Amino acid sequence: MQTNLYFVRHAHSTYTPDEFGRPLSAQGIADANRVTELLLREDIDVVVSSPYKRAVQTVQGIADFLGNEILIEMDLRERRIATNDVDDFAQAMKQLWTNPFFSFAGGESNHAAQHRGVSATRNILKKYQGDNVVIGTHGNLMVLIMNHFRGTYDFAFWQQLTMPDIYKLSFCGHHFVDAKRIWGKL
C-alpha cells in the first residue's frame, strides 16, 4: 500500500523575532494560494503541520477546501540554530551540515533535528498508511528528513529550495520509494 507525503516548505514570511507567530508576507499569501491550487490535483486526505504560523498558513487553503482541521505536530517545527542570532547564517548552516553532531549554544544539531523529524514522519506513515498527506513544515527540517531516506539530499540541495516548495515522498509501508518535486506545475 503506497502512502504519499507532500512536504510543503512554507511560503515567504515577514521577518519577526517571534518564530512561532511569524506570518506570511503578501507574496507568501499569494504563493500559498498557488500551493492550494496545486494540491487540489493530488487527492489529499489529511493535512498535518508544524505549529509555526507561516507553515500553517501555507497549507490552510487545502485544509479549508477539504473541510479538515490541520493536525499540529510539534516535531515538524523548524530546528533552532542557536539561542541568539548567528552572525553569518549561511556559514552557520554550512558548519551544521559539515558536522551533523555539532550544535551552537542552545541550538539543535542536524542529527538531533533529523531524528525528531524522521520520528514524526514515521508516526505519520503509521497513522495514515495508504493516504495522501500534506505536511506543512520548514526547509531545513524537510531536507534533513529527506536526507535520512536518501543521502543525496544535502546542504547544496537545501540551498536551492524555494519558498514555498513541495516534494512528494512516496513510501510502501515504511520503505522509501521515491521523491519528486511538484512545485511549479501549475
Rank of each mutant, 00 (worst) to 15 (best):
N132D: 11
V35T: 14
W97M: 01
K180S: 09
Y128P: 03
T162V: 10
E42M: 09
S50P: 05
R41F: 03
G117L: 04
M163Q: 15
L125G: 03
I62D: 02
G151H: 15
E42Y: 09
R122D: 09
A26T: 15
T16Y: 03
W158T: 06
D18K: 08
N110S: 06
S50E: 04
A30L: 14
M1C: 05
Q27D: 14
L38V: 07
V134A: 05
G28P: 01
N84L: 12
I81D: 01
I81Q: 01
T3W: 13
M142P: 06
A55R: 05
R54D: 10
W97Q: 01
V177N: 09
D165S: 05
A120C: 11
L96A: 00
S25D: 07
R22G: 00
F20C: 08
H138F: 05
N147Q: 14
H174N: 11
K53T: 10
W97P: 00
L39E: 06
T14P: 02
R116E: 00
L66F: 05
D85V: 06
K180D: 10
Y167W: 15
T14I: 09
A113I: 00
G139N: 05
V86D: 01
K94P: 01
R79Y: 00
Q57I: 01
T58F: 06
W158P: 05
A112T: 07
V46K: 08
H174R: 10
D87S: 13
N147K: 13
Q2V: 11
I124V: 12
K126Y: 08
K185M: 13
I29R: 15
Q159E: 11
Q160F: 04
T3F: 11
A32M: 09
Q160K: 15
E78T: 09
S109Q: 02
S25G: 09
R181K: 15
N132P: 05
H12K: 15
Q60V: 00
G151A: 13
D178H: 11
M1W: 06
I166Q: 02
K127Q: 13
I81L: 12
S103L: 00
P17E: 11
P100L: 00
K94Q: 14
L5C: 06
T121D: 08
D88K: 10
V35R: 12
I70D: 02
I81F: 07
K168D: 01
A120G: 10
L39I: 06
M163D: 13
K168M: 05
S103M: 00
L24Q: 09
D64Q: 12
A112E: 07
I44W: 03
V8Y: 11
P100Q: 02
I81Y: 00
N4F: 07
F65A: 09
I135Q: 07
N110T: 00
S13C: 12
Q27T: 14
T16V: 13
H10E: 08
L5G: 08
D88S: 02
I44F: 07
L24K: 12
A105S: 15
E19I: 11
V134D: 04
D131G: 03
I44R: 04
C172V: 10
G136W: 06
E19S: 11
D18T: 05
F176W: 15
D131M: 14
F89G: 03
S119I: 04
R22I: 03
P51E: 06
R41N: 13
N33L: 12
N33A: 13
S170V: 07
A32Y: 09
Y167E: 02
Y6L: 02
A120N: 10
I166F: 03
